[in-house]
Design a protein around this nucleic acid. Structure first.
Length: 995
DNA sequence: ATCCTCCCCTAC
DNA sequence: TAAGGTAGGGGAGGAT
């Protein structure tokens, strides 16, 4: 199975995959867990073991929940609740809805309970907690454990990252909202398109905050009624000596003082008969879905807070009794999920949330406006959402502990002490003021992944491997959300100086954290780009990998992936073809509608396009089926999910036959299917034509185009001091190997900048628009080093892309070369390294930071160590070529990755790049794992050969151009690389190419 | 004045 | 043994 696809799958159904494979395994697992812990053999359990097993089988939700959209009668639901043995059992609906009115609540103020999936403050963050082992034996035990061959840490497990997230409850909680967004996107977009949140200021709102009761426990024990009244907690491990942390405890357990975040051993000390149950993420996911389905059924303004908690704005729900709505929702939740929920009702989000605290467990509470002041007066400030440990302490030091006391502090003083925003928040909240609205659609602003447990590296290889896997994970998450980002932040937790191994097994202990970020001009979700940049940022920490206890990667400045790209399902062969087809059409359209200009460049483009169009017409006439339409233009729209989109394949005459022939048979078959069998016929016909017409034997249609456009080629200037046609007896063998054989000296086309500019505009209009804006933010003047290039928008686009791909900085050798340059050129080049990529302080690094420039910018090149090979050449030239090389390498690497991701076989890639001196080993199945060695090869190739074989390289790109009818990606490669290459060559060979 | 990066804090 | 994540928001301080 394709590794990328598998990862993607795992990423988005991480908790379902295993269980779906074997539905029964969950019950078996759970039973064996309980059995192992002696739960099933509880002497006092009312249900014998065999019955318990029976309950498992019958208790499956599919049977119990019934049709989802059936509203159970109130009686049914109450009896359902009664059966559950929950606290509702003796209450009528009426009582349920009114049981926790504000008037009953005064006594509860002192109890500030966290909600049930709420995450405890990790002990490693708590400076007052016992962070270090005072017990030497214990510490040494842990070290021994580390030394032994465990498979759950980065020390021993190469798949650590992948496995880790599947078992992390915090990961489940943290990524839950994204899963929700995906799953309920229909409902969210409906509301978004409607009249959400308009004119809401004047109106008094009715807000319901609803929260499941001890969610993580309830979901597990609903199948084990004998546990309902017993103290139960959810945890990874039941080892009473261990340092596993309690995730969630039910109310009986809380009565013993068991709290989320406690070590199991501490919890057992307080409550020896505490029952520990394992997580069941699939069940959590299932119940959360049921929970939200119910909420959306009752109200279209739902703001998801977490898997078990939401805000509802029921102001316009039709029913003007919010308490009744809350009651109905809670009963339906209990009936469907067999878990209880509590609700708070008030006029704003703050008060509704506070009311829920008072309502728990399994109750609801309404705070009327007139009672707000009384309610808040004695409420501890810590109970206000947004006030955590730090703020609480800060306020405490100012003798403020309750909201009443906080009201005494002036707004100005709060601003001064806490800043404007937090000051305002404090001032408003302690008065019960909250102007936030229920936000149905919440835009994702960042996506990331982080691991702070089990991180122990033996060497830099382990660490790099880990980082690369983290990039993969993040890349998949970005793609899963359909976004790309421009800001990449790497966070590292490093063991604090003097800190010992933490008590917590494989914990991160006492750490200092640091983070660094980089902003790139073009958003990306590409794993190779992320890996490249991440590696670079990480290197800038200059940290001993043995000291690392946690690593995180976060992507922000997100932009959603271009809709047209999504629409084209870029991961298919079809999309490559259709996209190419669209481009050809656009190109033709543009040309035919453009006003004729006198410049030769436009004529070149014109001639090329017209010839294409002619060929297109020609093929139409050859393949006409009587209706006048071209049969090779096949509409694929109807059979695909994107029913509104009609995409057409490029006409057969646009395919480069040589390229098609060189493809693996299965790809040809696939294409043939897409062309309804006509491709093979076309190929056969082509063969026949070839046999019948010797001089066309190796020419494809695309080559004919080349021939036509060659009419406007300009000859190499014979006065040039360097004769490009001599001394290269071994020109690169392209697929169409006869291409250059026995021909006159090579001529180089004079492709003008404006022609290329035209081409790139057609190919990438979005990028064009985008960069126009971003250029001002990240000024980059690489183009100024390209001598006399015009500063058209198109050129700017290319250079901006270039910045993304160019090395972050230069080597020591580069630095010495740069020093010799004229001041203005030097300044240009230095400036072309985006400021945030350069390193401001120099001196503490033995290897990377080699020197400071007068403007105090230190530079390094970590990724392309071989670029210094160019330094023997004239300085200006060096910089140019380094840049080009890196660009080429990156594009090829990216192309390779995409080929793999798109399911194209490595042989396809191999045939596309047959000009590369790849060994048979490097073409084997190991390709999957050897992208870096491929890059290495390419680097060597370019470095060793380009100096003498510019011609060869140019041929490569001619080849790429010929491939363009196959893939828009290749077309982009061509249009991006060629001008740079030409500019570089022109600089050095004094006008071989006319620019 | 405004933006950016690097934190810190908070919630679940 | 155990799985201490994720995302949003804001402040300080520096760069422009």
């Amino acid at each position: 199975m394709d590794c990328v696809a598998a990862n993607k799958l795992l990423s988005w159904v991480p908790y379902q995959l295993e269980e779906l494979v074997n539905k029964t395994s969950k019950q078996q697992k759970l039973s064996s867990f309980f059995s192992h812990k002696g739960i099933l053999s509880l002497k006092n359990a009312e249900t014998p073991v065999n019955q318990n097993v029976k309950f498992d089988a019958e208790g499956s939700l599919s049977k119990d929940e019934g049709p989802k959209d059936t509203v159970l009668s109130a009686e049914d639901q109450v009896s359902e609740c009664r059966e559950l043995g929950s606290n509702v059992h003796d209450k009528t609906c009426e009582e349920i809805s009114t049981e926790a009115k504000f008037t009953d609540l005064e006594d509860e103020h002192s109890v500030v309970q966290a909600s049930d999936t709420s995450v405890h403050r990790p002990s490693y963050m708590d400076s007052s907690s016992c962070m270090y082992s005072k017990n030497c034996k214990e510490a040494s035990d842990i070290k021994c454990a580390r030394a032994s061959n465990q498979s759950h840490s980065t020390l021993t497990d190469p798949n650590f990252v992948e496995n880790y997230f599947r078992n992390s409850r915090l990961h489940f909680i943290g990524t839950w909202r994204n899963r929700y967004r995906k799953r309920f996107s229909n409902m969210l977009s409906e509301v978004k398109g409607g009249k959400a949140n308009i004119n809401s200021d004047m109106q008094k709102h009715a807000i319901i905050h609803i929260d499941m009761d001890c969610f993580f426990v309830s979901v597990i024990i609903r199948n084990y009624p004998e546990l309902i009244d017993k103290p139960v907690a959810v945890c990874h491990s039941d080892n009473p000596k261990g340092t596993a942390e309690i995730s969630s405890a039910n109310y009986p357990a809380r009565d013993y003082g068991v709290r989320a975040g406690m070590f199991v051993r501490d919890a057992k000390a307080r409550c020896p008969h505490l029952v520990i149950v394992p997580y069941d993420f699939e069940a959590y996911e299932e119940v959360a879905d049921q929970f939200y389905s119910i909420l959306h059924k009752h109200c279209n303004k739902v703001q998801a807070l977490s898997c078990d908690e939401a805000f509802l704005d029921v102001t316009e729900c039709g029913n003007n009794n919010p308490e009744q709505i809350a009651s109905m929702i809670r009963m339906e939740i209990a009936g469907t999920t067999r878990c209880t929920a509590s609700a708070g009702i008030a006029e704003n989000l703050l008060l509704a949330r506070l009311a829920t605290r008072s309502a728990k467990p399994n109750g609801q509470c309404f705070i009327p406006s007139e009672k707000v002041d009384d309610y808040l007066n004695s409420l501890p400030v810590k109970a206000l959402p947004g006030i955590g440990h730090a703020l609480e302490e800060k306020l405490k030091s100012r003798q403020v502990q309750t909201c009443g006391q906080l009201r005494m502090v002036s707004k100005e003083a709060l601003h001064k002490d806490f800043g404007t925003k937090i000051g305002d928040m404090l001032w408003n909240y302690c008065r019960g003021i909250d102007n936030r609205m229920v936000e149905v659609v919440q835009e994702t602003k960042s996506i990331g992944a982080e691991v702070n447990w089990g991180v122990r590296f033996d060497g830099s290889t382990d660490c790099e491997n880990f980082l690369m896997n983290l990039c993969k994970e993040v890349s998949l998450r970005l793609q899963g959300c359909g976004v790309q980002g421009r800001a990449i932040t790497v966070k590292v937790r490093k063991r604090k100086k003097g800190a010992e191994e933490p008590i917590k097994f494989m914990g991160c202990g006492d750490c200092e954290t640091m983070s660094r970020s980089m902003t790139i001009p073009v958003p990306t979700d590409n794993v190779v780009s992320l890996q490249r940049i991440t590696k670079q940022i990480f290197a800038s920490f200059h940290i001993d990998v043995k000291e690392i206890r946690g690593i995180g990667l976060q992507i922000s400045k997100l932009e959603s992936v271009d809709i047209s790209r999504q629409g084209h399902e870029e991961n298919t062969l079809e999309s490559w073809l259709t996209s190419s087809s669209e481009k050809i059409k656009t190109q033709c359209k543009r040309i035919s509608s453009s006003v004729k200009q006198d410049t030769g460049e436009v004529l070149v483009a014109d001639a090329e396009c017209q010839s294409k169009c002619r060929n297109y017409e020609h093929s139409k006439s050859i393949y006409t089926n009587g209706t006048g339409s071209c049969p090779s233009e096949i509409n694929l729209g109807s059979s695909r999910s994107h029913e509104n989109r009609t995409s057409t394949l490029p006409p057969l005459c646009y395919l480069d036959i040589d390229v098609v022939k060189s493809l693996p048979q299965e790809i040809i078959s696939e294409m043939n299917d897409m062309y309804k069998g006509e491709l093979c016929a076309f190929l056969e016909k082509h063969e026949e034509d070839g046999r019948g017409n010797a001089h066309l034997s190796t020419k494809s249609t695309a080559e004919e185009n080349d021939t036509i456009s060659a009419a406007s080629y300009q000859r190499v200037n014979c006065d040039t001091s360097i004769d490009m046609t001599v001394g290269h007896s071994d020109p690169v063998k392209l697929n169409s190997s006869a291409r250059n054989e026995g021909k006159q000296p090579l001529c180089y086309p004079a492709v003008s900048m404006s022609n290329l500019a035209f081409e790139s505009k057609v190919l990438n209009p979005e990028a064009n628009e985008f960069t126009a804006g971003s250029m001002t933010r990240t000024p980059c003047k690489v183009q100024s080093a390209h001598a006399s290039c015009s500063r058209s928008d198109d050129l700017q686009m290319r250079t901006t892309n270039l910045v993304d791909l160019m090395p972050n900085s230069l080597t020591q050798a580069d630095a010495s070369v740069l020093e010799q340059l004229p001041e203005d050129l030097k300044a240009d080049i230095i400036e072309s390294l985006p400021a945030h990529r350069a390193v401001n302080s120099v001196g503490n690094d033995p290897i990377g930071f080699v020197r400071a420039f007068p403007n105090n910018v230190g530079v390094q090149n970590l990724e392309y160590p071989k670029t210094h090979l160019w330094l023997e050449s004239p300085p200006k030239w060096v910089v140019m070529f380094q840049t080009s090389n890196c660009l080429i390498l990156n594009i090829i690497a990216e192309l390779y990755t995409k080929s793999r991701a798109n399911g194209l076989l490595s042989s396809t890639f191999q045939s596309m790049f047959s000009f590369l001196p790849l060994t048979s080993e490097s073409c084997s199945e190991e390709w999957d794992e050897t992208l870096s060695s491929l890059c290495e090869l390419l680097t060597q190739y370019v470095n060793l050969k380009i100096e003498s074989d510019i011609e060869e390289l140019y041929n490569c790109f001619c080849f790429l151009k010929r491939c363009s009818s196959m893939s828009h990606l290749l077309l982009e490669v061509y249009s991006n690389v060629l001008p740079l290459l030409q500019a570089s060559v022109s600089e050095n060979y004094g006008g071989i190419f006319k620019l």
